[in-house]
Simulated scan of single mutants.
Amino acid sequence: MTTPEALRAEASDAASAFPPLLAEAEHLATTVLLGEHGRRRAGMGDAFWQYRPAQAIDEARNIDWRRSARADAHFVREKEWQIAQSVMMWIDRSASMGFSSDKDLPTKANRARLIGLAAAILLFRGGERVGLTGLNLPARAGQMQLMRLAGALSEEDETEYGAPVARGMLPHSRAIFISDFLGEIGDVEAALTDAADRGVRGVLLQVLDPQEEAFPFDGRTIFESMKGGLQHQTLKAGDLRDRYLERLAERKGHLADLAHRTGWQVSSHHTSQSAAAALLWIHGALGRHT
């Protein structure tokens, strides 16, 4: 079992490249007034919820040794408050998110990380537990968890476009998905359907570069994905504008329909806009799910 000291050193090393981002996230979080966001209620914390297999990040004191003695694996005993106050995040780190049309604008990935980390800070201050979807970073609270989040989000995904992950989402918890959502819409639909089946409600924030919204291209243009796997060359880019904008509107409409059918909420954000506005929307939207 990994010791707390080893975890602390590992998290500090992983997040060592992120002091400016963490500082910016802390500053951004202070711009949003924290209201009664936590879900502390009398009696919650004593009610048993479920056993789950222990993970490397779990401390030895959290193991239920009596339950573990009846099997060949270690189990953690979770209580109801751990579920009710858990928020799971999926922040797209695919190649598509590395795009920026202007050196003075952040990449979509950097903006997504900033908003995600600032949201985590607000949630921690409200008594919430935050983790990443998947099985590598379960929901926990505290400054060390923030460092783990920063370290995990520094890892890049080698795929062209991100696909949401619903694994590891606790029943009846809440979730935040941040992406450009320009990949396969079927992946988003599968993740939201899976989440809804578990009683999970959350928010979708679509982060786009201003050029992706306006399509200001004309004449000879070569369009290429960030990893070069997709390419299209045209002599009349302006002729593609109407069709592109139509397809983008269709994608936004599909996301809105998915959110409506699964009980989620959706909004869009441009990297040229204030990150505070997007954070405020997430904070308010999550509050409506409590």
Rank of each mutant, 00 (worst) to 15 (best):
P4I: 01
A6F: 11
A6Q: 12
R8A: 14
S16W: 09
F18P: 08
L21T: 01
L21D: 04
A25W: 01
E26P: 09
H27M: 11
L28N: 01
A29C: 01
T30I: 11
T31G: 14
T31A: 10
V32F: 00
L33G: 02
L33K: 00
L34F: 00
H37Y: 00
A42T: 09
G43S: 10
M44T: 13
G45T: 14
A47W: 12
F48Y: 12
F48L: 14
W49C: 10
Y51M: 11
R52V: 09
P53Q: 04
P53E: 05
P53V: 06
Q55D: 11
R61D: 13
R61S: 15
N62V: 15
R66A: 13
A69M: 03
A69G: 03
A69Q: 06
D72K: 11
R77M: 15
I83R: 15
S86D: 09
W90I: 10
I91A: 04
I91W: 04
A95E: 05
F99C: 04
K103T: 15
L105H: 15
T107H: 07
N110C: 08
R113D: 07
L114R: 00
G116R: 01
L117N: 00
L122R: 00
F124Q: 00
R125S: 03
G127C: 01
G127E: 03
E128T: 05
L132Q: 07
T133C: 08
G134T: 14
N136V: 15
L137K: 10
A139F: 12
A139E: 07
A139G: 08
R140N: 13
A141D: 11
G142Q: 07
G142R: 06
M144R: 12
Q145W: 03
L146Y: 02
L146H: 00
A150V: 11
G151I: 07
G151F: 08
L153A: 03
S154R: 03
S154P: 05
E155N: 14
E156W: 11
E156A: 15
E158P: 07
E158V: 06
E158L: 03
E158R: 03
A163K: 13
V165L: 14
A166C: 04
A166E: 12
A166H: 05
R167G: 07
M169Y: 12
P171H: 11
P171M: 10
H172C: 06
R174M: 12
I176V: 06
D180W: 05
F181C: 05
L182I: 14
G183T: 01
I185K: 08
A190M: 09
L192R: 05
T193W: 02
A195Y: 11
R198D: 11
R201T: 14
L204F: 05
V207D: 02
V207F: 01
L208F: 04
D209E: 05
P210E: 15
F215S: 02
P216D: 11
P216W: 07
D218N: 11
G228P: 03
K236L: 01
A237V: 13
A237C: 04
G238M: 06
E246K: 14
R247H: 08
L248F: 12
L248I: 14
H254Q: 08
L258K: 04
L258T: 04
A259G: 08
H260C: 10
T262N: 08
G263D: 07
W264F: 04
H269F: 10
T271D: 00
S272L: 14
Q273V: 08
Q273A: 09
S274Q: 06
A276S: 14
L279N: 02
G284F: 12
L286D: 00
G287L: 02
H289E: 08
T290R: 15
